[in-house]
Simulated assay, not measured.
Amino acid sequence: MTTCHGDDYDQADEVWQQAKEADREEVTTSRYPVLYPPDSWDVMSMLALYEPGVTYRRQQDGELLHPDGSWARATATGFLDSPTVHQSGTRLLVTTLERIRNRLNREGSLPAYGACVTITPDGVTTLKRGSWTFTL
Rank of each mutant, 00 (worst) to 15 (best):
R106P: 01
A74I: 08
W71I: 01
P37F: 06
D68N: 11
E98H: 05
W71Y: 13
R73S: 14
Y113Q: 15
N105S: 09
Y50L: 15
L49K: 08
S88D: 04
V124N: 07
R91P: 00
T118I: 10
L127R: 11
V85E: 00
W71F: 13
S30P: 04
M44C: 15
A76R: 07
R106A: 14
C116V: 15
E51I: 09
Y56E: 03
S88K: 11
P33L: 02
P38R: 08
V94A: 05
V94E: 04
R129G: 06
A48R: 12
Y36A: 04
G89H: 02
C116H: 15
L49D: 10
Y50V: 06
N105L: 07
T77A: 13
Q60C: 11
W41Q: 13
T126N: 03
S88M: 01
T28P: 02
L65W: 00
S30F: 08
A76C: 09
D68F: 05
N102K: 04
L97P: 00
T29F: 05
W41I: 14
I119L: 09
R58V: 12
G123S: 10
E98S: 04
L110I: 04
Q59L: 10
D122L: 11
E107H: 09
L104F: 07
R58T: 13
D81P: 09
T75E: 14
T55I: 11
V34D: 01
R106C: 10
I119Y: 08
G89E: 01
L92R: 14
T118G: 10
T28C: 11
R99N: 07
G89F: 00
